[in-house]
């Protein structure tokens, strides 16, 4: 059983910690770093409640060891409103009632963030497939889709405004 010192960036902050090799990234984030916005919902890489961005890509943090994140840039839900104002996805989920119990929400939002980075102008069908790795038991997904559409439009118009 090996322990490893790892250094990585999380939500813009560089941290160094010693972890056991088998420590799952999600436990590292939740327990070692006390960032409890990232959740755990299954054992089989099925539910996506633990989704975070690793170097910009959404992945399931229960299916990666913390030691593998050495040198990586990780973003969790806690990073999104860091500037003091809500991210368009957070706004969208609030405006469109894209959440109920809130448990899947952080993973869903981080998954959508990664998705929108690659599909800035998605169709409804693309959105539905794009979040198919994230389970929600409350909403029936209609309003999550609307929330992501809201964010896509907002991000698009922000980009157009900036050019």
């Amino acid at each position: 059983m090996s322990n490893h010192e790892i250094t990585l960036t999380i939500n813009g902050e560089t941290v160094t910690r010693t972890v056991e090799a088998r420590t799952l990234l999600v436990h590292f984030i939740r327990e070692d770093l006390s960032l409890t916005g990232t959740h755990i919902g299954c054992d089989t890489t099925s539910c996506g409640a633990c989704t975070v961005l690793v170097d910009g890509k959404p992945v399931k943090s229960c299916t990666m060891f913390a030691v593998q994140a050495e040198g990586a840039d990780i973003e969790t839900i806690e990073s999104l409103a860091a500037g003091g104002s809500l991210h368009p996805l957070q706004e969208g989920f609030w405006e469109k009632h894209g959440l109920q119990c809130g448990y899947c929400t952080p993973g869903m939002i981080m998954s959508a963030k990664g998705f929108l980075a690659e599909h800035p102008n998605p169709t409804e069908d693309e959105i539905r497939h794009g979040i198919s790795g994230n389970l929600c038991r409350c909403t029936g997904y209609n309003k999550i889709v609307e929330a992501i559409q809201y964010a896509a439009e907002k991000l698009q118009s922000a980009e157009a405004g900036g050019e």
Partner: peptide
């Protein structure tokens, strides 16, 4: 193959 999150890894 699986889902988009899995396919990222």
């Amino acid at each position: 193959i699986a889902d988009p999150l899995v396919r990222n890894q």
